[in-house]
Computed example of a mutant assay.
Amino acid sequence: MGDDMAWVILVLAGLFEVAMAYSLKMSDGFSDLWWSLSFLVFAVLSFGLLAFALKSLEVGTAYAVWTGIGAVGTATVGILLLGDSVSTMKVISILAILAGVVGLNLAGGGH
């Protein structure tokens, strides 16, 4: 697999991580069966795609990008869909994480 495809897979893994976190919140402490099952499906997809991307990407870079996508995406979903608080500092911090993810992607990290 080429590095470009590995990056696409890694981004998808990060997006599934966001869906996993949202499902976890909606599961209400695993008391809602369907949201709990959704969490499990997204967790398997996210970790599975991460593992696949790691066949071509450096672990440190890939893991940082994956968690960065998850952090930025989950914080954004929390603000937009779940009523999480928003502040200037929170937005600046989210943008800083996003800048780091973009920077790591531009820096490469393939084998």
Rank of each mutant, 00 (worst) to 15 (best):
W34F: 13
I9P: 14
L37T: 01
I92G: 10
V11C: 06
K90A: 05
V18Y: 03
V101N: 07
V77C: 09
Y22T: 14
N105S: 11
S85Q: 12
L15V: 12
A51K: 15
M89E: 14
F52D: 15
G78N: 04
M20L: 13
T61W: 08
L37V: 12
G110F: 06
L40T: 09
V102C: 08
L81I: 04
I94R: 02
G103M: 09
F16V: 05
A43P: 09
V59Y: 11
L37R: 03
L98Y: 07
G108F: 03
L98T: 09
A43I: 15
I92T: 12
L10Q: 01
F52V: 15
G78A: 04
A62S: 00
G108R: 01
M26D: 08
A21Q: 12
M89H: 12
D28L: 10
A21R: 10
V102F: 14
V77K: 05
L98I: 09
T74G: 08
G73Y: 07
V72E: 03
A71M: 08
I79Y: 05
V102R: 05
L33F: 14
F30Y: 14
K25Y: 11
L10V: 09
I69Y: 04
A21N: 14
G100P: 08
I69F: 11
K55A: 15
Y22S: 13
V72Q: 04
L98G: 11
L15M: 11
I92S: 11
M89K: 13
S36I: 00
A19N: 02
G60A: 06
V86G: 08
A13C: 09
G103I: 10
L49T: 10
V86Q: 03
V72K: 08
A53I: 10
L104F: 10
V77Y: 14
G60T: 03
D32Q: 08
L45S: 09
L54F: 12
V102Q: 04
S56W: 04
V102Y: 11
F52Y: 15
G110I: 00
E17P: 03
T61C: 07
V86K: 01
K90F: 01
L50S: 02
V72A: 10
A62F: 00
S38N: 01
N105P: 04
D32T: 05
M89C: 07
G73W: 07
L54N: 09
I94L: 11
L95P: 10
I97H: 00
L49N: 07
F42N: 05
A96I: 12
E58A: 12
G109Q: 00
K55T: 14
G60K: 02
V91M: 15
